[in-house]
Amino acid sequence: SKDTIRINGIDIDVKDLHEEWKRLVEEALKRGDEELAIELLERALKE
């Protein structure tokens, strides 16, 4: 798994994120759902 995830052309540092969150965000991006990916990231970062 990578340490960054690219959303809207912005590389976001996710190395401190739990693997499960990372996977969910990557799944959302694979489906092209950037809005969901951002929402998941925000939730993950609050934890």
Rank of each mutant, 00 (worst) to 15 (best):
1 S>D: 13
1 S>A: 11
1 S>G: 14
1 S>V: 12
2 K>N: 14
2 K>C: 05
2 K>E: 11
3 D>N: 08
3 D>M: 01
3 D>P: 05
3 D>T: 06
4 T>C: 04
4 T>W: 04
4 T>L: 06
5 I>T: 01
5 I>Y: 03
6 R>S: 14
6 R>N: 14
6 R>H: 14
7 I>M: 03
7 I>K: 01
8 N>L: 04
8 N>V: 01
8 N>R: 05
8 N>W: 02
9 G>C: 04
9 G>H: 04
9 G>M: 03
9 G>D: 06
9 G>Q: 03
10 I>W: 06
10 I>K: 10
10 I>Y: 09
11 D>E: 12
11 D>M: 07
11 D>F: 05
11 D>W: 07
11 D>K: 04
11 D>I: 08
11 D>L: 09
12 I>T: 04
12 I>L: 07
12 I>F: 15
12 I>G: 01
13 D>F: 09
13 D>C: 05
14 V>S: 03
14 V>I: 15
14 V>F: 08
14 V>H: 02
14 V>N: 02
14 V>L: 10
14 V>P: 03
15 K>E: 06
15 K>C: 01
15 K>F: 08
15 K>I: 06
15 K>S: 15
16 D>C: 12
16 D>L: 11
17 L>K: 01
17 L>H: 02
17 L>D: 01
17 L>M: 08
18 H>Y: 06
18 H>M: 08
18 H>W: 06
19 E>M: 09
19 E>V: 12
19 E>R: 09
19 E>Q: 11
19 E>L: 06
20 E>N: 15
20 E>P: 11
20 E>M: 12
20 E>I: 13
21 W>A: 08
21 W>H: 06
21 W>Q: 09
21 W>G: 04
21 W>T: 14
21 W>E: 05
23 R>Y: 11
23 R>W: 09
23 R>Q: 11
24 L>Q: 10
24 L>P: 03
24 L>T: 02
24 L>F: 05
25 V>C: 02
25 V>G: 00
25 V>R: 00
26 E>N: 15
26 E>A: 11
26 E>D: 09
26 E>P: 00
26 E>S: 11
26 E>T: 13
27 E>N: 08
27 E>C: 08
27 E>D: 13
28 A>Y: 05
28 A>D: 00
29 L>I: 11
29 L>W: 05
30 K>V: 09
30 K>W: 11
30 K>C: 04
30 K>G: 12
31 R>C: 07
31 R>Y: 10
31 R>W: 12
31 R>S: 10
31 R>E: 10
32 G>R: 04
32 G>E: 04
32 G>K: 05
32 G>W: 03
32 G>Y: 04
33 D>L: 08
33 D>R: 04
33 D>I: 02
34 E>F: 08
34 E>H: 12
34 E>V: 14
34 E>W: 06
35 E>D: 12
35 E>S: 13
36 L>R: 08
36 L>M: 11
36 L>H: 09
36 L>E: 09
37 A>D: 00
37 A>S: 01
37 A>W: 02
37 A>N: 00
37 A>F: 02
38 I>Q: 11
38 I>F: 14
39 E>K: 14
39 E>R: 13
39 E>L: 15
39 E>I: 14
39 E>C: 12
40 L>D: 01
40 L>K: 00
40 L>N: 00
40 L>M: 07
40 L>F: 06
41 L>Q: 00
41 L>M: 06
41 L>E: 00
41 L>N: 00
41 L>G: 01
42 E>V: 06
42 E>L: 07
43 R>N: 10
43 R>V: 11
43 R>G: 07
43 R>T: 12
43 R>M: 15
43 R>I: 14
44 A>L: 07
44 A>I: 04
44 A>G: 15
44 A>W: 13
45 L>A: 09
45 L>C: 08
45 L>E: 08
45 L>Y: 13
45 L>H: 10
46 K>W: 10
46 K>F: 10
47 E>F: 07
47 E>T: 07
47 E>S: 07
47 E>D: 10
